[in-house]
Amino acid sequence: MAQIFSRNANVYARVTTFGIVVLICGVGWATNEVFWSPYTTYVDVPLTQPVPFSHKHHVAEDGIDCRYCHTSVEKSRFAGMPTSETCMHCHSQIFTDVPLLAPVRESLATNAPLKWNRVHDLPDYVYFDHSIHVAKGIGCSTCHGRVDQMPITWRVNTLYMKWCLDCHRHPQKFVRPPDKVFAMTWQPSQDRQLEPTQLVRQYHIDTSGRLTNCSTCHR
């Protein structure tokens, strides 16, 4: 009777068994890498902008407060983008003829807004409100990073759900005293005159689990 399996069958069987495991792991690993890489998350990817605005210059070197331009951050969902007129508060007098600022001057002259590229864009099924986070002691740099060190703006956090939940589960790791919300250099380890849990209580942050309800963010 003829043999059903050829001489090489054992090798084929081993190679395919091993190969499938490697393939599945490999695909899983590659997907994971792509999913968490800047290619998907845009973390650390500076975007091209109509004007190469430097937060580093305006915040760190000029000492301009976040709220000078992002005026609605304390009272609305949206932090607010400065109008071209806001730029002109200073640039009507200084650097008035720099070519880099030509788009701003043109925008003011023609009353057409500058078309900035959004650095942080949440999916539309997520509800987010700046004002409540600022009011409850979450500082700018907790989510936006050291913007004062960015010559052009990029994203430092994925803004993925996992990342949001880390804070919604453990707010005590991130809350700051009210006067430090706009401070760029503040670190969680610093300035612990008030215990973090005490701060959480002071801000009346709900720790009963309501912050991690689906409908808190997906409403």
Partner: peptide, 22 residues
Amino acid sequence: AICAECHGRTGDGNGMVVQRGF
């Protein structure tokens, strides 16, 4: 937050933006 950039924190008119030429 809004005024000290030019007017200075003590109001003497020597804020950072003024030092830059405003």
